[in-house]
Amino acid sequence: MQQLEINNLRVAIGESEIIRDLSLTVRTGEVHAIMGPNGSGKSTLAKAIAGQPDYRVTGGGVLMDGENLLELGPDERARRGLFLAFQYPSEIPGVTIADFLRAAAQSRSPEGEELEATDYYAKLYEKMDLLDIDRSFTSRSVNEGFSGGEKKRSEILQMAMLEPRFAILDETDSGLDIDALKIVAHGVNSLRSPNLGVLVITHYQRLLNYIIPDFVHVMVQGRIVRSGDKELALELEEKGYDWIRDHAEEPVLV
């Protein structure tokens, strides 16, 4: 078993500290959900782990199988097996999904070894069928003119192709109608395996009806204030985030 270990992490944007002493361990085979109100630092956590240069780590560590990820560039982290599904994926004009994914796959091949095109396309089409994605999708520019649902399906398609060991899904449910949500959740569920650890970040409990988590953590003001099983999500849905604020295990600073 492998693990993604977040130890006493502190992250700042500019001068303001967003993540304040956060610790969490995700093992392969597990699905963790982080829930929290707007501004609690959920997305900051995701981007800091992935290596977004605007997010400054001021303390603590992130280890993947004992290796300090914070010393690696974002591309190296990804090649080690980390994946971030973006809440707002960037548009890359003029770069097709096929070329983009091929470059990503190529970057994981040993030095000097060309990716086998036939194998690559066979795998791509298999994953696209799984996510109910039309073949013409591959010749479109990355995220350009995509609907909300298409963007999220594209993120999950990338995850399926790149076969990470740890995946962080940042508000993958935002902007999706129920049908699109089901398709995306189905895609994620089909990728669940003993070799993959998943961290699902969401504002709403709804997604967790379709991607059933093993653990649920509630995040408020940059730290995890409560952890539990999937029942915690339901309780939270019922009682609202104020309930957590009122019953935080330790005092929450404003």
Binding site: A50, G51, Q52, P53, G73, P74, D75, A78, R79, F83, L84, F86, P89, S90, E91, I92, V95, D99, F100, L101, A103, A104, Q106, S107, R108, Q158, L162
Partner: peptide, 18 residues
Amino acid sequence: EMFYLLSRGIPEIIAKQL
């Protein structure tokens, strides 16, 4: 855009080319 490509494992020089 650059971070998005890097986050997929694509090295910076290739990302720039793309």
